[in-house]
Simulated scan of single mutants.
Amino acid sequence: MSKVVMYSSAFCPYCHRAKSILDSKGVNVEEIFVDRKPDIRQTMMDKSGRNTVPQIWIGDTHVGGSDDLWALDRNGDLDPMLAKLAG
């Protein structure tokens, strides 16, 4: 996987928050909506071990949810992860 994938819900404020930071960094996000799609939500849960959205992968790395993404950015770890995708 060489992209950013985010399992999301249309009405989730945390999903919008996560998408906004990725958008601000110019990242194209493959957003997979789980609304009314129990099979896709189950796939997300099987992959992540979590049942909440968003669930975000940068490349092959599962970074977690919105708070996890923001923590990566605050710690200066997000930009290097994103740079590896471009590189």
Rank of each mutant, 00 (worst) to 15 (best):
V34A: 06
C15E: 06
D23K: 15
K37E: 15
N28Q: 13
L72D: 02
A18Q: 03
R17C: 02
N75G: 10
R74P: 02
P80A: 10
D77L: 15
K47Q: 07
R50M: 14
Y7V: 07
D67S: 14
G64L: 12
W57L: 04
D46N: 15
I32K: 12
A18Y: 04
W70F: 15
D77S: 14
V27C: 05
C15A: 11
D73N: 15
V53Q: 03
D77C: 11
F11L: 12
R74N: 09
V4C: 03
G59D: 07
M44F: 07
D60M: 07
I32W: 07
S2V: 10
C12Q: 00
R17I: 02
K47E: 07
V34I: 15
E31Q: 12
G76A: 04
W57V: 06
K3I: 00
I58R: 08
M81G: 07
R74M: 02
L22E: 07
G26V: 06
N51A: 11
A18W: 01
G65F: 14
D46Y: 09
K19M: 10
S2D: 14
I58G: 05
L82G: 09
Y14F: 13
A86T: 12
K84P: 03
S66C: 15
P13V: 06
D23H: 10
E31I: 10
D60Q: 12
K25M: 13
N28E: 12
R41V: 00
S20L: 10
G65C: 10
S48K: 07
N75I: 04
A71T: 13
G59I: 05
S66V: 02
Q42K: 15
Y7K: 06
W57K: 07
Y14P: 04
S48H: 01
K3A: 12
K47G: 04
S9F: 00
P38I: 06
G65Y: 08
K84W: 04
G64H: 06
S8D: 02
Y14Q: 03
I58P: 09
H16S: 10
D73Q: 11
I56D: 01
S2N: 15
Q55M: 01
D35A: 04
Y14V: 07
R41W: 10
K84L: 08
S8C: 02
G87E: 14
L22I: 08
I40E: 02
Q42L: 13
T43D: 13
Q55K: 00
A18H: 08
L22W: 03
A10W: 04
S2I: 02
I56F: 09
P38N: 09
V4H: 03
S8F: 07
K37R: 15
D73C: 05
T43R: 14
V4P: 07
P38D: 03
L78I: 12
A86K: 14
P13M: 02
R74D: 09
S66L: 00
V4M: 06
R36E: 15
D23E: 14
D77Q: 15
S9C: 05
I40Y: 11
R36K: 14
Y7R: 04
D73I: 11
V63Q: 07
G65E: 08
M81N: 08
M1T: 10
G64E: 08
G76K: 05
T52F: 04
P54K: 03
Q42T: 13
M45L: 01
L78T: 01
A10F: 00
